[in-house]
């Protein structure tokens, strides 16, 4: 289900000794994944400074929802690196197809502008550390892991 427009998705960073944890929450897996993507961008720059000038389509499939989150963040990290872009807005759909999970998404962003974005640090990859993706006890969905910077 695409992430609803309107209020910004809730995301946050959490502590890791050497690096940064990214966490997204939402009413669905798709919302939580979109929010985690905003948290990923926030490791590099203020996501509200990134203009949605260009759309990039992303699709990943994995055997589990947790692996799907790692694949999603890795796909974004790859797109940021090879396109020299930052992304600030995400539309995400997560579906279960048989035994596998599939994510299709559009990420909107723009080329890195050092003077405006003041990018802090490159992200090297998503990790399995503190990896969690799924429903929470309180009813919402969570998507989180530590990213290596």
């Amino acid at each position: 289900m695409p992430h609803a427009n309107g209020s910004p998705p809730p995301w946050e960073h959490f502590e890791h000794g050497a690096d940064v944890g990214v966490r997204g929450r939402g009413a669905s897996a798709a919302e939580a994944f979109a929010a985690a993507a905003v948290a990923l961008t926030a490791v590099v720059t203020d996501p509200t400074r990134v203009a949605p000038r260009k759309a990039v389509a992303i699709e990943v499939r994995e055997a589990t929802l947790e692996l799907l989150l790692v694949a999603w963040l890795d796909a974004l990290i790859y797109a940021m690196a090879v396109r020299t872009m930052l992304f600030g807005r995400f539309e995400v759909a997560v579906t279960k197809e048989g035994e596998a999970w599939r994510l299709t998404a559009t990420a909107w962003g723009e080329g890195v502008a050092v003077a405006r974005h003041r990018p802090t640090v490159e992200v090297k990859g998503a990790t399995f550390t503190e990896l969690r993706a799924g429903p929470t006890a309180t009813g919402g969905w969570i998507a989180q892991c530590v990213v290596d910077v």
């Binding site: 692996l67 790692v70 890795d74 990290i77 090297k124 998503a126 399995f128 290596d148």
Partner: peptide
């Protein structure tokens, strides 16, 4: 190197 790590870890 980052991508090799990502690919093989998985």
């Amino acid at each position: 190197g980052h991508q090799i790590g990502t690919d093989y870890l998985k």
